[in-house]
Each structure stands twice: as structure tokens, then as C-alpha cells.
Amino acid sequence: MTGTYLIRIRNIILLILVQSLIFNRIHLFGYATAAVYLIFLLKLPRYTSRNELLLWAFIMGITIDLFGSTPGINAAAATLLAFVRNPILESFIQKSNPEDLTPGIPSMRFGGYMSYATICITIFYTALYILELFTIRYPMTLLIGVASSTLLTILFILVTEKFSSK
């Protein structure tokens, strides 16, 4: 049990560093960024309680904010994602699936995992962009930003999935 948590904390530190030092600096076409650190939340096993998900999400979000000078924005969006993750996951797997199922292409098939990831990431980015734009009225910027960033993140999730399955 302690072992899994140590590995998780190591993964969190790695993902936060990769996110803030590399991915936060990639902006395709001036809009799209990839939030690869969300992979951690998506890949937590099925039995993970909502409380635990919320805690991890908040810690990661606030650390990313700390590095990116965006206080509270990532934390709020990631907490929202953590809150809705379990119901979304349940809707793409059978009741009979094992409790310790780790979401991924091997366990959920390609279509199932992609739909699950796309819905989660879209919710995250919609919240993120609304919080960031807050008082400004640019619906087009919002749409393009959410769509392109979600696409880019999904792309990176696919890549990591391909590498980890081998």
C-alpha cells in the first residue's frame, strides 16, 4: 500500500515538472496547450474514492498554478474533473469489470478509453478557459482554445498509451 503511494507521489512530481517546464511552453497556433498532468487522474484505478481523487487533483492543480502564475485556475478545473471522473468512467465500463481496473486501451478498448478521456479533458478545458477569460467576451477564442487544447492533450495521451502498453 505504501509502495503504491510512493510511486504515485514520484509520478506526480515527474508530471508536474514535465508539465511546467516543457508542456506549458508549447503553444501550437497560439492557442493549443496540452495538460498532460491529467493523465495521472485519468489512470487512477476504478476503486479510487472521490475524496482521494479530489485531493490528488487539488494538490496537482495548485502546484501547476504555482509554477505558471495562474493562482487557482488549474486547481479549480482539475478539482471539477476529479469530481466527475468516477461517474464518467462507470458509464464506459461494465458492472462486472474488476474493481481494480486501471483505465486504459487494454482494459476499456480504444473507443471506450478515448471517449472517457475526451469527455474528461473537454470538461477540464472548458472550466479552465472560462475561469481564465472570466470577464471577457470572446466566445470564439473560448471554443477554439477548448477544442484545440483538448485535441492536443488527447494526442499526447494516445502517445503515452502506446508506449506504456508495450
Binding site: F58, G61, I62, D65, P71, G72, I73, A75, T79
Partner: peptide, 9 residues
């Protein structure tokens, strides 16, 4: 958690 985040924002 959302409350803390919004407070920070």
C-alpha cells in the same frame, strides 16, 4: 477545494 481555488483567483 473549489472555494479555495476561487479565493486564490
Amino acid at each position: 477545494f473549489e472555494g479555495i481555488s476561487f479565493m486564490l483567483i
